[in-house]
Design a protein around this nucleic acid. Structure first.
Lengths: 225, 225
DNA sequence: GCGTTAGTGGGCTGGAAAGCCCAAAAAACG
DNA sequence: CGTTTTTTGGGCTTTCCAGCCCACTAACGC
């Protein structure tokens, strides 16, 4: 599943070698998430992972290769998390609320931001050649929402007028933007409000289960959470 | 108007000195916007602004002071733009559409992102002490939207149920997130769709001008643009 | 078991970039 | 008109960091 058609992993890797590489990767991801790419240097990583200079050069010849590996690692994690059973493939509004609730409650949201988004924003303007990898990750991420919304429509939970692609864009953009604003403000509120509003908008297209228990003047019902 | 209670500007500045400082600032802002903070060094700035090493040290003793000044400069610009007559203080849905249309049509949106947001995301994790300044700028920015939405509500254009603060959060978050996604994808679509959806949501709360010409089953009308 | 390949250690170096210094020119100011 | 302050020039140096090298050890395969 991992590392398909991937040159940086030279095939010839002992169990021990794989373990070392994984350890470097984990510590690199953690350091980069907390301190950023630029403020993370070899020495810190060496100490954190308990390795020595030549290992970095052995497993990750350049910083670019390390950052790329970290991106792939973080992308796998965040995509796996969103595909986990916890969110039932986003086939219901509740799962969206559950998702938002998780990140609003997560302390590191307003401290370090999104594991992928903060990294992306930090290095997108540098000469590191990682744009394609990031673009791919974000597309898959958006597709998770889109597919969920499409299924909701197929299941008759969402109005036919709802545009899954557009709504998925809004959800992911509100998430990323909310994360940035929360980070800058050191306060989770911007993320909370943005996600709340975005999901309320999705709910705007909700079709009542069977007989309308809710029959007020407007078809809108942005309230429950 | 500018530089209130600001130490870095040492009062004693000749016209010539002010001109030089302004020239440095403009070129620094442009370089940083295109290449990022980290990839912009003194030499490039020296050449671009046609100045010499000691001037940088004279007007901006440290890189932090330069970045801070650029943040203030960019914040002033973006806030002034949003407060300009063009958007009539966002007292109507049309002005929101106009605003979104501008950034969707702006080429540099998907090339360099937001002048303030991309800068913020790049340096928020570094030890540069600029968070408070950024937080202040984003708060004012959000308040422009919030005030506009509040006025729309006062004027009876928006339903009383609409929450101006929350909607303003959504607009700004969708903008920032959309900018990031567009930059990564090198395609304006994510920004376009996110803003479209966010504004459609605001429109969900729109109150028809006078007599309802639209009288369909749902009170929602996310379509017209 | 022995040769070959992978893994480890730590020191080193070449380059880049921020910040500083000495001194000269220009402007302000009495 | 002379003095003081500001502005400018360009070089220099100290710091930092990514990438590299040589030597050694461990594991694997035949």
């Amino acid at each position: 599943m991992e590392a398909t058609t991937e040159a940086p992993v030279p095939q010839r890797l002992t169990n021990k070698g794989q373990a070392t590489r994984a350890r470097i990767l984990e510590h690199a991801a953690e350091l980069i998430y907390t301190k950023g790419v630029h403020a993370t240097n070899n020495e810190q990583l060496r100490r954190a992972a308990g390795i020595s200079g030549s290992q970095l050069n052995h497993y990750f010849p350049t910083k670019e290769s390390l950052v790329l590996a970290v991106i792939e690692w973080q992308a796998e994690r965040v995509l796996a998390f969103h595909r986990s059973e916890r969110f039932t493939h986003f086939e219901s509004l509740d799962s969206l609320r559950e998702w938002a609730g998780f990140y609003v409650a997560y302390e590191r949201s307003y401290q370090e931001g999104c594991t992928l988004g903060s990294l992306a924003a930090e290095i997108i303007k540098t000469d590191l050649d990682v744009r394609a990898e990031l673009a791919n990750a974000f597309e898959q991420w958006r597709n998770i929402f889109r597919d969920g919304l499409e299924r909701m429509r197929t299941l008759g939970r969402l109005d036919a007028e709802a545009d899954p692609t557009r709504l998925a864009c809004l959800l992911l953009a509100a998430f990323q933007g909310g994360m940035l604003l929360a980070q800058v403000a050191r306060d989770i509120t911007p993320l909370k409000e943005a996600l709340r509003a975005a999901i309320d908008y999705v709910q705007t297209f909700a079709v009542p289960p069977a007989a309308g228990a809710l029959d007020d003047a407007s078809g809108r019902e942005p309230g429950p959470v």
